[in-house]
Design a protein around this nucleic acid. Structure first.
Lengths: 242, 242
DNA sequence: CGGAGTCTTGAGTATCTTCAATGAGCGTGG
DNA sequence: CCACGCTCATTGAAGATACTCAAGACTCCG
Protein backbone atom coordinates (compact mmCIF):
# COMPACT_ATOMS: atom_id res chain seq x y z
CA UNK A 1 0.00 0.00 0.00
CA UNK A 2 1.35 3.38 -0.96
CA UNK A 3 1.92 6.11 1.54
CA UNK A 4 -0.06 9.14 0.59
CA UNK A 5 2.17 11.91 -0.76
CA UNK A 6 1.85 15.08 1.31
CA UNK A 7 0.87 17.23 -1.61
CA UNK A 8 -0.46 20.16 0.41
CA UNK A 9 2.23 21.07 2.91
CA UNK A 10 0.48 24.30 3.86
CA UNK A 11 -2.63 22.52 5.14
CA UNK A 12 -2.42 22.42 8.86
CA UNK A 13 -5.92 21.44 9.93
CA UNK A 14 -7.44 18.03 10.33
CA UNK A 15 -10.76 19.22 8.95
CA UNK A 16 -11.55 18.49 5.34
CA UNK A 17 -14.05 21.31 5.01
CA UNK A 18 -11.59 23.81 6.42
CA UNK A 19 -8.91 22.76 4.00
CA UNK A 20 -11.35 23.00 1.12
CA UNK A 21 -11.93 26.65 1.92
CA UNK A 22 -8.27 27.34 2.53
CA UNK A 23 -7.37 25.90 -0.84
CA UNK A 24 -9.46 28.57 -2.54
CA UNK A 25 -7.50 31.46 -1.09
CA UNK A 26 -4.22 32.97 -2.21
CA UNK A 27 -1.32 32.94 0.23
CA UNK A 28 -2.17 36.32 1.64
CA UNK A 29 -5.85 35.67 2.31
CA UNK A 30 -5.09 32.20 3.55
CA UNK A 31 -3.00 33.79 6.25
CA UNK A 32 -5.85 36.12 7.16
CA UNK A 33 -8.19 33.13 7.30
CA UNK A 34 -5.88 31.15 9.50
CA UNK A 35 -5.22 34.06 11.82
CA UNK A 36 -8.95 34.56 12.24
CA UNK A 37 -9.43 30.95 13.23
CA UNK A 38 -9.57 29.99 16.86
CA UNK A 39 -9.71 26.47 18.13
CA UNK A 40 -11.78 25.31 21.03
CA UNK A 41 -12.36 22.00 22.70
CA UNK A 42 -15.95 21.13 23.62
CA UNK A 43 -16.84 18.46 26.15
CA UNK A 44 -19.81 16.13 25.73
CA UNK A 45 -23.13 17.83 26.25
CA UNK A 46 -22.11 21.36 25.35
CA UNK A 47 -23.75 23.12 22.44
CA UNK A 48 -22.04 24.99 19.65
CA UNK A 49 -25.17 27.01 18.99
CA UNK A 50 -28.88 26.80 19.69
CA UNK A 51 -31.96 26.77 17.54
CA UNK A 52 -33.24 30.31 17.04
CA UNK A 53 -29.95 32.08 17.71
CA UNK A 54 -28.60 34.30 14.99
CA UNK A 55 -25.59 32.81 13.36
CA UNK A 56 -22.33 34.62 13.98
CA UNK A 57 -19.72 31.99 13.29
CA UNK A 58 -18.73 29.17 11.06
CA UNK A 59 -17.69 25.94 12.74
CA UNK A 60 -15.33 23.23 11.55
CA UNK A 61 -15.27 19.92 13.35
CA UNK A 62 -11.70 18.73 13.59
CA UNK A 63 -12.48 15.72 15.71
CA UNK A 64 -15.34 14.27 17.71
CA UNK A 65 -19.01 14.14 16.88
CA UNK A 66 -21.75 16.74 16.86
CA UNK A 67 -25.49 16.18 16.55
CA UNK A 68 -28.10 18.49 15.11
CA UNK A 69 -31.30 18.53 17.09
CA UNK A 70 -34.53 20.32 16.37
CA UNK A 71 -37.43 21.06 18.67
CA UNK A 72 -40.94 22.06 17.78
CA UNK A 73 -43.34 24.30 19.60
CA UNK A 74 -44.80 21.40 21.58
CA UNK A 75 -41.52 20.62 23.23
CA UNK A 76 -40.82 17.52 21.16
CA UNK A 77 -37.34 17.28 19.87
CA UNK A 78 -35.49 14.91 17.61
CA UNK A 79 -31.93 14.28 16.61
CA UNK A 80 -31.84 14.95 12.90
CA UNK A 81 -28.30 14.46 11.75
CA UNK A 82 -24.82 13.63 12.86
CA UNK A 83 -21.89 15.79 11.87
CA UNK A 84 -18.60 14.03 11.78
CA UNK A 85 -15.01 15.21 11.88
CA UNK A 86 -14.18 17.10 8.68
CA UNK A 87 -17.60 18.69 8.33
CA UNK A 88 -18.59 22.31 8.61
CA UNK A 89 -21.53 23.80 10.47
CA UNK A 90 -23.29 27.11 10.22
CA UNK A 91 -22.78 27.92 6.56
CA UNK A 92 -26.47 27.50 5.85
CA UNK A 93 -27.59 30.03 8.42
CA UNK A 94 -24.81 32.39 7.39
CA UNK A 95 -25.72 32.18 3.72
CA UNK A 96 -29.41 32.57 4.34
CA UNK A 97 -28.80 35.35 6.84
CA UNK A 98 -31.20 33.52 9.09
CA UNK A 99 -31.24 32.08 12.57
CA UNK A 100 -29.99 28.60 13.29
CA UNK A 101 -32.66 26.01 12.63
CA UNK A 102 -31.11 23.39 14.87
CA UNK A 103 -29.20 23.09 18.07
CA UNK A 104 -25.71 21.70 17.62
CA UNK A 105 -24.97 19.41 20.51
CA UNK A 106 -21.60 17.86 21.18
CA UNK A 107 -22.01 14.08 21.39
CA UNK A 108 -18.37 13.11 21.66
CA UNK A 109 -15.68 15.42 22.94
CA UNK A 110 -14.83 17.61 19.96
CA UNK A 111 -12.09 19.86 18.73
CA UNK A 112 -13.74 22.69 16.82
CA UNK A 113 -12.36 25.55 14.75
CA UNK A 114 -14.32 28.74 14.68
CA UNK A 115 -14.27 31.66 12.25
CA UNK A 116 -16.44 34.71 12.60
CA UNK A 117 -18.93 35.67 9.95
CA UNK A 118 -17.40 39.08 9.25
CA UNK A 119 -14.08 37.56 8.23
CA UNK A 120 -15.87 35.24 5.87
CA UNK A 121 -17.78 38.06 4.26
CA UNK A 122 -14.59 39.99 3.78
CA UNK A 123 -12.83 37.04 2.18
CA UNK A 124 -15.81 36.17 0.01
CA UNK A 125 -15.88 39.72 -1.28
CA UNK A 126 -12.24 39.57 -2.34
CA UNK A 127 -12.18 36.05 -3.75
CA UNK A 128 -14.30 34.90 -6.63
CA UNK A 129 -13.69 31.29 -5.73
CA UNK A 130 -14.38 31.47 -2.04
CA UNK A 131 -18.12 31.09 -1.97
CA UNK A 132 -17.72 28.11 -4.24
CA UNK A 133 -16.53 26.40 -1.10
CA UNK A 134 -19.89 26.86 0.55
CA UNK A 135 -21.47 25.52 -2.60
CA UNK A 136 -19.36 22.42 -2.14
CA UNK A 137 -20.62 22.04 1.41
CA UNK A 138 -24.21 22.37 0.29
CA UNK A 139 -23.82 19.85 -2.51
CA UNK A 140 -22.26 17.35 -0.13
CA UNK A 141 -25.10 17.83 2.30
CA UNK A 142 -27.54 17.42 -0.56
CA UNK A 143 -25.96 14.15 -1.64
CA UNK A 144 -26.04 12.89 1.89
CA UNK A 145 -29.66 13.87 2.43
CA UNK A 146 -30.64 12.23 -0.84
CA UNK A 147 -28.88 9.08 0.28
CA UNK A 148 -30.83 9.11 3.53
CA UNK A 149 -34.04 9.66 1.61
CA UNK A 150 -33.28 6.73 -0.64
CA UNK A 151 -32.57 4.51 2.30
CA UNK A 152 -35.83 5.45 3.93
CA UNK A 153 -37.62 4.60 0.71
CA UNK A 154 -36.06 1.24 0.11
CA UNK A 155 -34.37 -0.25 3.18
CA UNK A 156 -35.90 -2.09 6.11
CA UNK A 157 -35.22 -0.89 9.62
CA UNK A 158 -32.71 -3.66 10.20
CA UNK A 159 -30.65 -2.62 7.20
CA UNK A 160 -30.85 1.03 8.09
CA UNK A 161 -29.47 0.22 11.51
CA UNK A 162 -26.63 -1.81 10.02
CA UNK A 163 -25.90 1.00 7.63
CA UNK A 164 -25.72 3.48 10.49
CA UNK A 165 -23.40 1.19 12.41
CA UNK A 166 -21.21 0.97 9.34
CA UNK A 167 -20.96 4.73 9.40
CA UNK A 168 -19.76 4.63 12.98
CA UNK A 169 -17.38 1.86 12.12
CA UNK A 170 -15.82 3.97 9.40
CA UNK A 171 -15.02 6.57 11.97
CA UNK A 172 -14.16 4.62 15.07
CA UNK A 173 -12.07 1.78 13.79
CA UNK A 174 -10.11 1.66 10.58
CA UNK A 175 -10.63 -1.01 7.98
CA UNK A 176 -9.62 -4.15 9.79
CA UNK A 177 -11.60 -6.41 7.57
CA UNK A 178 -13.69 -9.33 8.76
CA UNK A 179 -12.36 -9.02 12.29
CA UNK A 180 -14.90 -8.67 15.05
CA UNK A 181 -14.75 -5.26 16.66
CA UNK A 182 -16.51 -3.05 19.12
CA UNK A 183 -17.88 0.45 18.83
CA UNK A 184 -19.35 2.72 21.44
CA UNK A 185 -22.42 4.64 20.38
CA UNK A 186 -22.37 8.13 21.87
CA UNK A 187 -26.14 8.45 21.82
CA UNK A 188 -29.09 6.94 23.59
CA UNK A 189 -31.81 4.78 22.10
CA UNK A 190 -34.32 7.56 21.53
CA UNK A 191 -31.79 9.50 19.47
CA UNK A 192 -30.75 6.41 17.59
CA UNK A 193 -34.40 5.79 16.82
CA UNK A 194 -34.78 9.38 15.57
CA UNK A 195 -31.86 8.98 13.20
CA UNK A 196 -33.38 5.82 11.79
CA UNK A 197 -36.86 7.22 11.56
CA UNK A 198 -38.48 4.93 14.07
CA UNK A 199 -39.30 4.69 17.78
CA UNK A 200 -37.34 3.17 20.65
CA UNK A 201 -39.62 0.15 20.92
CA UNK A 202 -39.20 -0.92 17.31
CA UNK A 203 -35.50 -0.23 17.50
CA UNK A 204 -35.21 -2.41 20.55
CA UNK A 205 -36.91 -5.28 18.77
CA UNK A 206 -34.63 -4.93 15.80
CA UNK A 207 -31.61 -4.99 18.07
CA UNK A 208 -32.94 -8.12 19.74
CA UNK A 209 -33.32 -9.76 16.36
CA UNK A 210 -29.77 -8.92 15.34
CA UNK A 211 -28.62 -10.34 18.63
CA UNK A 212 -30.53 -13.55 18.09
CA UNK A 213 -29.19 -13.90 14.57
CA UNK A 214 -25.68 -13.56 15.93
CA UNK A 215 -24.65 -10.65 13.74
CA UNK A 216 -24.30 -7.83 16.22
CA UNK A 217 -24.44 -7.84 20.00
CA UNK A 218 -25.64 -4.73 21.81
CA UNK A 219 -24.78 -4.14 25.42
CA UNK A 220 -26.13 -0.75 26.37
CA UNK A 221 -24.21 1.67 24.20
CA UNK A 222 -21.43 -0.74 23.45
CA UNK A 223 -21.89 -2.63 20.24
CA UNK A 224 -19.94 -5.76 19.45
CA UNK A 225 -19.98 -6.51 15.75
CA UNK A 226 -19.52 -10.22 15.26
CA UNK A 227 -19.99 -10.37 11.51
CA UNK A 228 -18.60 -7.19 10.00
CA UNK A 229 -19.54 -8.46 6.56
CA UNK A 230 -23.17 -7.97 7.56
CA UNK A 231 -22.45 -4.26 7.74
CA UNK A 232 -21.28 -3.88 4.20
CA UNK A 233 -23.43 -0.98 3.26
CA UNK A 234 -24.68 -1.99 -0.10
CA UNK A 235 -24.94 1.34 -1.84
CA UNK A 236 -28.53 2.25 -2.38
CA UNK A 237 -29.86 1.45 -5.80
CA UNK A 238 -30.38 5.00 -6.85
CA UNK A 239 -28.02 7.17 -4.90
CA UNK A 240 -24.39 7.15 -4.08
CA UNK A 241 -22.91 8.39 -0.85
CA UNK A 242 -21.14 11.70 -1.14
CA UNK B 1 -55.41 42.57 -1.89
CA UNK B 2 -52.41 44.59 -3.00
CA UNK B 3 -50.97 44.35 -6.45
CA UNK B 4 -47.33 43.44 -6.33
CA UNK B 5 -45.11 46.42 -7.21
CA UNK B 6 -42.91 45.70 -10.21
CA UNK B 7 -39.71 46.48 -8.45
CA UNK B 8 -37.40 44.86 -10.99
CA UNK B 9 -38.27 46.29 -14.38
CA UNK B 10 -35.22 44.72 -16.04
CA UNK B 11 -36.34 41.18 -15.27
CA UNK B 12 -37.82 39.73 -18.38
CA UNK B 13 -37.99 36.06 -17.60
CA UNK B 14 -40.69 34.08 -15.90
CA UNK B 15 -38.18 31.89 -14.14
CA UNK B 16 -37.34 32.67 -10.56
CA UNK B 17 -33.96 30.94 -10.66
CA UNK B 18 -32.98 32.82 -13.80
CA UNK B 19 -33.85 36.13 -12.25
CA UNK B 20 -31.90 35.26 -9.14
CA UNK B 21 -28.76 34.85 -11.23
CA UNK B 22 -29.47 37.93 -13.30
CA UNK B 23 -29.81 40.00 -10.18
CA UNK B 24 -26.23 39.23 -9.23
CA UNK B 25 -24.75 40.68 -12.39
CA UNK B 26 -24.00 44.30 -13.28
CA UNK B 27 -25.74 45.80 -16.28
CA UNK B 28 -22.99 44.82 -18.65
CA UNK B 29 -22.71 41.21 -17.65
CA UNK B 30 -26.46 40.91 -17.40
CA UNK B 31 -26.62 41.78 -21.06
CA UNK B 32 -24.02 39.13 -21.86
CA UNK B 33 -26.01 36.62 -19.85
CA UNK B 34 -29.25 37.46 -21.59
CA UNK B 35 -27.68 37.39 -25.00
CA UNK B 36 -26.27 33.96 -24.29
CA UNK B 37 -29.69 32.66 -23.35
CA UNK B 38 -31.77 30.82 -25.87
CA UNK B 39 -35.31 29.71 -25.30
CA UNK B 40 -36.74 26.46 -26.48
CA UNK B 41 -40.11 24.79 -26.18
CA UNK B 42 -40.13 21.09 -25.34
CA UNK B 43 -43.13 18.85 -25.94
CA UNK B 44 -44.16 16.12 -23.53
CA UNK B 45 -41.86 13.13 -23.59
CA UNK B 46 -38.71 14.89 -24.75
CA UNK B 47 -35.64 14.91 -22.56
CA UNK B 48 -33.48 17.89 -21.68
CA UNK B 49 -30.53 15.64 -20.95
CA UNK B 50 -29.85 12.02 -20.15
CA UNK B 51 -28.20 10.21 -17.31
CA UNK B 52 -24.51 9.73 -18.01
CA UNK B 53 -24.14 12.58 -20.47
CA UNK B 54 -21.61 15.24 -19.67
CA UNK B 55 -23.27 18.44 -18.69
CA UNK B 56 -22.86 21.30 -21.12
CA UNK B 57 -25.72 23.59 -20.30
CA UNK B 58 -27.74 25.10 -17.55
CA UNK B 59 -31.51 24.89 -17.87
CA UNK B 60 -34.19 27.18 -16.50
CA UNK B 61 -37.78 26.03 -16.53
CA UNK B 62 -39.97 28.95 -17.41
CA UNK B 63 -43.17 26.97 -17.57
CA UNK B 64 -44.31 23.38 -17.58
CA UNK B 65 -43.05 20.45 -15.59
CA UNK B 66 -39.92 18.34 -15.79
CA UNK B 67 -39.19 15.07 -14.00
CA UNK B 68 -35.85 13.66 -12.96
CA UNK B 69 -35.56 9.95 -13.51
CA UNK B 70 -32.77 7.61 -12.59
CA UNK B 71 -32.04 4.10 -13.83
CA UNK B 72 -29.81 1.50 -12.32
CA UNK B 73 -27.72 -1.16 -14.00
CA UNK B 74 -30.58 -3.69 -13.86
CA UNK B 75 -32.81 -1.58 -16.00
CA UNK B 76 -35.06 -0.44 -13.17
CA UNK B 77 -35.85 3.20 -13.19
CA UNK B 78 -37.70 5.53 -10.90
CA UNK B 79 -38.97 9.05 -11.01
CA UNK B 80 -37.09 10.85 -8.27
CA UNK B 81 -38.19 14.44 -8.32
CA UNK B 82 -40.35 16.95 -10.05
CA UNK B 83 -38.95 20.27 -11.19
CA UNK B 84 -41.46 23.01 -11.47
CA UNK B 85 -41.50 26.32 -13.31
CA UNK B 86 -38.98 28.67 -11.78
CA UNK B 87 -36.41 26.02 -11.02
CA UNK B 88 -33.01 25.45 -12.52
CA UNK B 89 -31.45 22.20 -13.71
CA UNK B 90 -27.90 21.15 -14.37
CA UNK B 91 -26.07 23.30 -11.88
CA UNK B 92 -25.08 20.29 -9.82
CA UNK B 93 -23.41 18.48 -12.67
CA UNK B 94 -21.77 21.70 -13.82
CA UNK B 95 -20.41 22.47 -10.38
CA UNK B 96 -19.17 18.96 -9.78
CA UNK B 97 -17.77 18.77 -13.29
CA UNK B 98 -19.46 15.41 -13.53
CA UNK B 99 -21.95 13.67 -15.76
CA UNK B 100 -25.67 14.04 -15.27
CA UNK B 101 -26.94 11.62 -12.66
CA UNK B 102 -30.52 11.72 -13.89
CA UNK B 103 -32.48 11.97 -17.06
CA UNK B 104 -34.60 15.10 -17.25
CA UNK B 105 -37.87 14.20 -18.90
CA UNK B 106 -40.49 16.71 -19.92
CA UNK B 107 -43.79 15.79 -18.27
CA UNK B 108 -45.83 18.80 -19.30
CA UNK B 109 -45.04 20.93 -22.31
CA UNK B 110 -42.29 23.25 -21.11
CA UNK B 111 -40.68 26.52 -22.04
CA UNK B 112 -37.00 26.22 -21.14
CA UNK B 113 -34.15 28.73 -21.18
CA UNK B 114 -30.68 27.40 -21.87
CA UNK B 115 -27.27 28.87 -21.17
CA UNK B 116 -24.03 27.16 -22.06
CA UNK B 117 -21.50 26.21 -19.42
CA UNK B 118 -18.70 28.29 -20.88
CA UNK B 119 -20.66 31.52 -20.51
CA UNK B 120 -21.38 30.67 -16.91
CA UNK B 121 -17.74 30.02 -16.18
CA UNK B 122 -16.80 33.31 -17.74
CA UNK B 123 -19.38 35.20 -15.71
CA UNK B 124 -18.52 33.40 -12.50
CA UNK B 125 -14.89 34.31 -12.98
CA UNK B 126 -15.71 38.00 -13.30
CA UNK B 127 -18.37 38.25 -10.62
CA UNK B 128 -17.74 37.48 -6.98
CA UNK B 129 -21.44 37.19 -6.34
CA UNK B 130 -22.38 35.00 -9.22
CA UNK B 131 -21.63 31.58 -7.79
CA UNK B 132 -23.62 32.58 -4.75
CA UNK B 133 -26.60 32.04 -7.03
CA UNK B 134 -25.77 28.38 -7.42
CA UNK B 135 -25.39 28.20 -3.67
CA UNK B 136 -28.93 29.48 -3.39
CA UNK B 137 -30.15 26.77 -5.76
CA UNK B 138 -28.38 24.11 -3.72
CA UNK B 139 -29.77 25.36 -0.43
CA UNK B 140 -33.28 25.38 -1.84
CA UNK B 141 -32.85 21.85 -3.07
CA UNK B 142 -31.49 20.89 0.33
CA UNK B 143 -34.49 22.35 2.10
CA UNK B 144 -36.82 20.55 -0.23
CA UNK B 145 -35.05 17.23 0.13
CA UNK B 146 -35.06 17.57 3.90
CA UNK B 147 -38.78 18.24 3.77
CA UNK B 148 -39.30 15.08 1.74
CA UNK B 149 -37.17 13.16 4.19
CA UNK B 150 -39.21 14.45 7.09
CA UNK B 151 -42.42 13.48 5.38
CA UNK B 152 -41.17 9.98 4.75
CA UNK B 153 -40.26 9.70 8.41
CA UNK B 154 -43.50 10.93 9.85
CA UNK B 155 -46.40 10.86 7.42
CA UNK B 156 -48.55 7.96 6.30
CA UNK B 157 -48.95 7.21 2.64
CA UNK B 158 -52.38 8.84 2.54
CA UNK B 159 -51.01 12.11 3.86
CA UNK B 160 -48.02 12.04 1.58
CA UNK B 161 -50.38 11.67 -1.36
CA UNK B 162 -52.51 14.58 -0.21
CA UNK B 163 -49.39 16.64 0.29
CA UNK B 164 -48.26 15.88 -3.24
CA UNK B 165 -51.67 16.81 -4.61
CA UNK B 166 -51.42 20.06 -2.71
CA UNK B 167 -48.20 20.76 -4.53
CA UNK B 168 -49.90 20.24 -7.86
CA UNK B 169 -52.77 22.38 -6.73
CA UNK B 170 -50.40 25.22 -5.96
CA UNK B 171 -49.21 25.13 -9.50
CA UNK B 172 -52.25 24.32 -11.54
CA UNK B 173 -54.98 26.34 -9.97
CA UNK B 174 -54.61 29.44 -7.93
CA UNK B 175 -55.89 29.79 -4.41
CA UNK B 176 -59.62 29.53 -4.81
CA UNK B 177 -60.20 28.49 -1.29
CA UNK B 178 -62.58 25.73 -0.19
CA UNK B 179 -63.97 25.38 -3.70
CA UNK B 180 -63.87 21.97 -5.26
CA UNK B 181 -61.47 21.86 -8.16
CA UNK B 182 -59.85 19.50 -10.61
CA UNK B 183 -56.24 18.86 -11.45
CA UNK B 184 -54.70 16.73 -14.15
CA UNK B 185 -51.70 14.70 -13.08
CA UNK B 186 -49.17 14.54 -15.90
CA UNK B 187 -47.73 11.25 -14.72
CA UNK B 188 -48.81 7.66 -14.49
CA UNK B 189 -49.39 5.60 -11.37
CA UNK B 190 -45.99 3.96 -11.31
CA UNK B 191 -44.28 7.36 -11.32
CA UNK B 192 -46.66 8.71 -8.73
CA UNK B 193 -45.83 5.71 -6.58
CA UNK B 194 -42.11 6.38 -7.02
CA UNK B 195 -42.49 9.95 -5.87
CA UNK B 196 -44.35 8.80 -2.79
CA UNK B 197 -41.98 5.98 -2.03
CA UNK B 198 -44.42 3.16 -2.55
CA UNK B 199 -45.67 0.78 -5.22
CA UNK B 200 -48.62 1.10 -7.60
CA UNK B 201 -50.71 -1.45 -5.71
CA UNK B 202 -50.51 0.34 -2.39
CA UNK B 203 -51.08 3.66 -4.10
CA UNK B 204 -54.18 2.31 -5.76
CA UNK B 205 -55.58 1.17 -2.43
CA UNK B 206 -54.90 4.55 -0.90
CA UNK B 207 -56.66 6.26 -3.76
CA UNK B 208 -59.63 3.93 -3.30
CA UNK B 209 -59.77 4.83 0.36
CA UNK B 210 -59.72 8.56 -0.37
CA UNK B 211 -62.50 7.97 -2.86
CA UNK B 212 -64.56 6.06 -0.32
CA UNK B 213 -64.03 8.75 2.31
CA UNK B 214 -65.29 11.34 -0.15
CA UNK B 215 -62.23 13.59 0.00
CA UNK B 216 -60.73 13.19 -3.42
CA UNK B 217 -62.05 11.44 -6.50
CA UNK B 218 -59.57 9.99 -8.97
CA UNK B 219 -60.57 9.29 -12.52
CA UNK B 220 -57.50 8.13 -14.34
CA UNK B 221 -55.16 11.05 -14.29
CA UNK B 222 -57.86 13.55 -13.54
CA UNK B 223 -58.27 14.30 -9.88
CA UNK B 224 -61.34 15.96 -8.48
CA UNK B 225 -60.68 17.42 -5.08
CA UNK B 226 -63.94 17.56 -3.18
CA UNK B 227 -62.61 18.74 0.14
CA UNK B 228 -59.67 21.05 -0.49
CA UNK B 229 -59.31 21.53 3.24
CA UNK B 230 -58.13 17.93 3.42
CA UNK B 231 -55.13 18.98 1.36
CA UNK B 232 -53.96 21.63 3.72
CA UNK B 233 -50.39 20.50 3.96
CA UNK B 234 -49.77 20.78 7.62
CA UNK B 235 -46.13 21.79 7.62
CA UNK B 236 -44.04 18.93 8.84
CA UNK B 237 -43.22 19.11 12.48
CA UNK B 238 -39.51 19.56 11.99
CA UNK B 239 -38.94 21.05 8.61
CA UNK B 240 -40.32 23.92 6.65
CA UNK B 241 -40.82 23.96 2.93
CA UNK B 242 -38.32 26.05 1.03
C1' DC C 1 -60.36 -7.97 -32.54
C1' DG C 2 -55.94 -8.70 -30.38
C1' DG C 3 -52.27 -7.29 -27.69
C1' DA C 4 -49.47 -4.56 -24.74
C1' DG C 5 -49.25 -1.69 -21.22
C1' DT C 6 -51.51 0.11 -17.28
C1' DC C 7 -54.47 0.09 -13.37
C1' DT C 8 -57.08 -2.13 -9.77
C1' DT C 9 -58.29 -5.79 -6.60
C1' DG C 10 -57.70 -9.97 -3.65
C1' DA C 11 -55.36 -12.82 -0.33
C1' DG C 12 -51.78 -13.63 2.53
C1' DT C 13 -47.93 -11.88 4.95
C1' DA C 14 -44.26 -9.00 6.79
C1' DT C 15 -43.08 -4.96 9.06
C1' DC C 16 -43.81 -1.46 12.05
C1' DT C 17 -46.51 1.26 15.52
C1' DT C 18 -48.93 2.07 19.72
C1' DC C 19 -49.86 1.74 24.41
C1' DA C 20 -48.85 -0.11 28.50
C1' DA C 21 -46.26 -2.66 31.74
C1' DT C 22 -41.97 -4.35 33.38
C1' DG C 23 -37.06 -4.17 34.28
C1' DA C 24 -32.37 -2.18 34.77
C1' DG C 25 -29.37 1.49 36.15
C1' DC C 26 -28.30 5.53 38.80
C1' DG C 27 -28.09 9.27 41.82
C1' DT C 28 -30.28 11.34 46.03
C1' DG C 29 -31.61 11.61 50.48
C1' DG C 30 -32.99 9.47 54.64
C1' DC D 1 -26.72 1.12 53.36
C1' DC D 2 -31.08 0.85 51.30
C1' DA D 3 -35.47 2.71 49.71
C1' DC D 4 -37.15 5.92 46.59
C1' DG D 5 -37.84 8.21 42.43
C1' DC D 6 -36.24 9.11 38.02
C1' DT D 7 -34.84 8.07 33.37
C1' DC D 8 -33.90 4.92 29.96
C1' DA D 9 -34.49 0.36 27.80
C1' DT D 10 -36.93 -3.73 26.83
C1' DT D 11 -40.90 -6.67 26.18
C1' DG D 12 -45.81 -8.03 25.30
C1' DA D 13 -50.03 -7.85 22.85
C1' DA D 14 -53.03 -6.00 19.58
C1' DG D 15 -53.67 -3.71 15.56
C1' DA D 16 -52.60 -0.65 11.68
C1' DT D 17 -50.08 -0.01 7.60
C1' DA D 18 -47.85 -1.38 3.68
C1' DC D 19 -45.74 -5.06 0.63
C1' DT D 20 -45.73 -9.15 -2.52
C1' DC D 21 -47.54 -11.95 -5.84
C1' DA D 22 -50.95 -12.88 -8.87
C1' DA D 23 -55.13 -12.47 -11.30
C1' DG D 24 -58.48 -9.77 -13.48
C1' DA D 25 -60.14 -5.32 -15.71
C1' DC D 26 -59.47 -1.42 -18.30
C1' DT D 27 -57.58 1.55 -22.12
C1' DC D 28 -55.26 2.74 -25.96
C1' DC D 29 -53.88 1.73 -30.56
C1' DG D 30 -52.85 -0.75 -34.44
Amino acid sequence: MLTKPSQEPCEVSGCHAYNALLRRLDANDARVFRDATRTKKFPVGRTLFSQGETCEQLYFIESGLVGLRRSDENGNSALLRLCRAGESLGYRAITAGAAHQNTAEVLASSQVMIVSKSVLRWLAHRNTEFSGGFLGFALNALNQTEAICAELLTARLKDRLLSLLAMFDERVVGSESSQRFEIELPIQRKDLADLLGTNPASLSRTIARLHKDGDVRFNGRRVLVLKPEALKKEASRFWVQS
